[in-house]
């Protein structure tokens, strides 16, 4: 989803002075009357109330719960940082975090690379049928991940399509129930993410690349740049912004993934595909360990914010 922290924190604001116009008009334009600015509050307040009441307040409450020992029924007991210490001591918990980091490779890195390859291949000449391809490549992005998960369970099954294909191409020896394989379940899960995210990355990059001034390519050709160099020195810098955005969106999807894991493996086999979101759900709503669940949710949020900031930082520095 477009969970993108806007490049500049506030959207571009109109209202910059445009020279040579009547002074009085300009004054009202720049500074709406005080009463109008105050009345603006009436328009913002309903949204603010719902947002604070149902998102910000619960988020802060979760932070508070992370310092308590609570089963959801009896009165809570103060636990200070115990829940956090537990996360780093309990292998099941920190392994879940590691798994979600591995998922970033499949949800984010691979789709970005695929998207860039496709952009290089498709830029420019392909016109007829583009709408069709656009619709198809975007399709995985609009589906409920639960249904995607059910579908892939079947594709990965012992007698599913993946194994059928492997047998056709003579790799019958490696067929298995992929999502049940101790070593490969996480990779199999990650590849579902690759399937859902690649189209999104590609569409973002194509949209960005179409805005690149064609004269840049002409200049590059005059300078003797080959196709690869043109891609490296013109296309790639031209879609830098889109790469950042794609990386942010897909990384958040990887770290916070729940639906897909819940439906396909539910953490198995033997905890090999546990992810933080799944354990938050399980701890809070099945095991009545709300303190640990909250602490894990807080750690997850910190990791998400850390990654998003890091991606933005690196994207900015090279500029």
């Amino acid at each position: 989803m477009p969970d993108d922290l806007a490049m500049s924190p506030s959207p571009p604001r109109a209202g910059a002075a445009r020279g040579g116009e009547e002074n009085a008009v300009r004054r009202t334009r720049r500074l709406p009357r005080g009463s109008r600015r105050a009345k603006g509050l009436l328009y913002v307040l309903p949204a603010l109330a719902v947002y604070v009441g149902f998102a910000i307040w619960p988020a802060l409450s979760t932070l508070r719960l992370s310092f308590l020992e609570w089963d959801g029924i009896l009165p809570p007991v103060w636990a200070a940082f115990e829940n956090y210490v537990e996360i780093f001591q309990d292998p099941a918990l920190y392994e879940a975090i590691l798994h979600s980091l591995i998922l970033i490779i499949f949800f984010s890195f691979v789709p970005v690379v695929i998207g860039l390859l496709m952009t290089a291949l498709l830029l420019g000449r392909v016109r007829t049928g583009m709408t069709f391809f656009r619709v198809v490549f975007f399709l995985p992005q609009v589906l409920p991940l639960v249904a995607v998960g059910v579908t892939w369970r079947w594709l990965y099954a012992e007698n599913g399509v993946i194994n059928q294909f492997l047998e056709v191409i003579g790799l019958g020896g490696i067929t298995r129930a992929w999502l049940g394989d101790y070593h490969l379940a996480l990779v199999a899960l990650g590849l579902i993410g690759t399937w859902t995210m690649s189209g999104l990355c590609m569409m973002l990059f194509l949209a960005g690349a179409q805005k690149i001034d064609t004269s840049l390519y002409e200049a590059a050709i005059i300078d003797g740049a080959g196709p690869f160099q043109q891609f490296r020195h013109v296309t790639l810098p031209g879609v830098r912004r889109e790469i950042t955005i794609a990386a942010v969106i897909t990384t958040i999807a990887a770290l916070a993934s729940f639906d897909l894991v819940f439906v396909t493996t539910n953490g198995g086999p033997a905890g090999q595909t546990n992810v933080p979101a799944l354990l938050v759900y399980r701890l809070a709503f099945n095991e009545g360990n709300i303190g640990s669940a909250s602490a894990l949710a807080v750690v997850l949020t910190v990791i998400v914010i850390g990654f998003v900031s890091a991606i933005r930082y690196f994207a900015r520095e090279d500029r």
Binding site: Y51, S61, T62, L255, A297, T301
Partner: peptide, 21 residues
């Protein structure tokens, strides 16, 4: 505006635990 935009990175997981209770 900044306050609203920050909500774009809040994972549902952080909200849902306390929201339920």
């Amino acid at each position: 505006s900044l306050g609203f935009v920050l909500g774009l990175t809040l994972p549902v997981e952080l909200v849902v635990v306390a929201l339920y209770f």
